[in-house]
Amino acid sequence: MTAATTDRCHHTLSVLVENKSGVLARVAGLFSRRGYNIVSLAVAPSDDARFSRITIVVDVESAPLEQIVQQLHKLVPVVDISELAPADARERELLLATVSAGPETRGQVIQLVGVFEGKIIDVSADRLTVMLAGAPETIDDFEELIRGYGIVELQRTGRVALPRLDRATGVAERPRVVA
């Protein structure tokens, strides 16, 4: 995964689903059988125990957003779908990476993590495991920069998002409820 995660063809859907077994399989199955591409996917319980929230970044080159949304909406456990346009959303993602960091490069890697305000969460003689949370574009930049030092393993969570707040009122701007 490279900087392509912030492509303009990618839209973020925030999908509220019933918290029941098999729901993720239904969503994933829909995408695969209709030939839609998932760029990233994050699933977690919502503030209401009955529901989970799936944040899906979809590639609208593979199918029109409207089709993806309408087909998703036909799944019975899908309760609500909002589209978070990049300009209207606060998006964050978490990255964990184990990077080669021998004596000669260790200092540079630590410095880089400091510049990005990440954290070092594990250390061995010649490797560091680092953590960074941030906007997907920032994560993309960081990933590209540490690649030069040698990535041993890397894991990104996929993005989660909430609607941007209206500065004056402090109330969240309503996401476009598309279905």
Binding site: S21, G22, A25, R26, G29, L30, R33, K74, L75, V76, P77
Partner: peptide, 14 residues
């Protein structure tokens, strides 16, 4: 069977 028929039913229940 709920897994197998996910793509050919409106919904299914176990």
């Amino acid at each position: 069977i709920t897994g197998i028929t996910m793509g050919v039913t409106k919904h299914n229940w176990l």
